[in-house]
Amino acid sequence: MKYAIALGSNLGDSRSILESALSRLEGVIARSSWYQTKAVTLPNSPSQPDYLNGCAILETDLEPLELLAKLQHIESEFGRIRQQKWDARTLDLDILLFEDGIFQTQMLNIPHPRMSDRAFVLVPLAEIAPDWQHPVLNRSILELARSIDASDVRKL
């Protein structure tokens, strides 16, 4: 099965953390460049350091919830502590897409419900999977990336 995964970090040595996390993922068939982006925070939250973000395409036999558990395990190994929504983090791994399907449970929604609003996801994903169709919006990743303001996304 083919998945699109987003990777992000804004605490610690983000580039090293992302590279190490990527090496822990089995079945990586494509990976994007790293991009520097402003942190998305809740209103009235303290400012955070910029993020490094990227995407990868994986081929694996894992079912979506199995992959989610593996990603969360990797996050915790890199010191991820889930306290508040949109907190700064050492590592964030999100499943964006799963084949051309839709997967919805209480724990996991694929496609990622906010991916089409996030230039820091769409720009790196368009680099490696421009023709992948969003199964709900019926638009390619490249089309989605071109339709959003990406002025704060800087390729490293």
Results as ranks from 00 to 15, higher is better:
123 V>W: 00
56 A>W: 08
81 I>R: 07
31 R>G: 08
153 V>M: 00
97 L>S: 09
51 Y>R: 00
1 M>V: 13
60 T>M: 00
107 M>S: 13
74 I>A: 04
15 R>C: 13
14 S>V: 14
94 D>M: 00
152 D>M: 06
18 L>G: 12
34 W>N: 05
35 Y>H: 06
83 Q>S: 15
37 T>W: 00
79 G>L: 01
131 D>E: 13
129 A>P: 00
109 N>L: 10
97 L>W: 07
82 R>H: 09
22 L>F: 13
79 G>D: 04
9 S>N: 14
118 R>W: 05
1 M>I: 14
127 E>D: 09
14 S>M: 15
66 E>K: 07
127 E>P: 02
2 K>I: 15
146 R>N: 15
114 R>Y: 14
143 E>F: 11
136 V>E: 10
103 F>N: 08
152 D>A: 09
79 G>E: 05
109 N>Y: 11
103 F>M: 05
144 L>A: 09
12 G>W: 03
11 L>T: 04
43 P>R: 00
47 S>F: 08
35 Y>L: 02
12 G>P: 06
95 I>F: 08
27 G>K: 07
106 Q>A: 15
64 P>E: 01
69 A>R: 15
86 W>Y: 03
42 L>D: 00
96 L>K: 03
53 N>G: 03
6 A>E: 01
83 Q>R: 14
92 D>W: 03
140 S>G: 05
145 A>L: 02
86 W>P: 00
147 S>E: 12
13 D>N: 12
90 T>I: 03
123 V>F: 01
69 A>N: 13
135 P>N: 08
25 L>V: 04
4 A>Q: 11
87 D>A: 10
143 E>Y: 10
49 P>L: 05
105 T>F: 11
90 T>V: 05
149 D>L: 09
29 I>H: 03
150 A>T: 10
152 D>K: 03
16 S>C: 12
93 L>W: 11
21 A>G: 13
129 A>G: 11
54 G>F: 01
136 V>S: 07
68 L>T: 10
28 V>N: 00
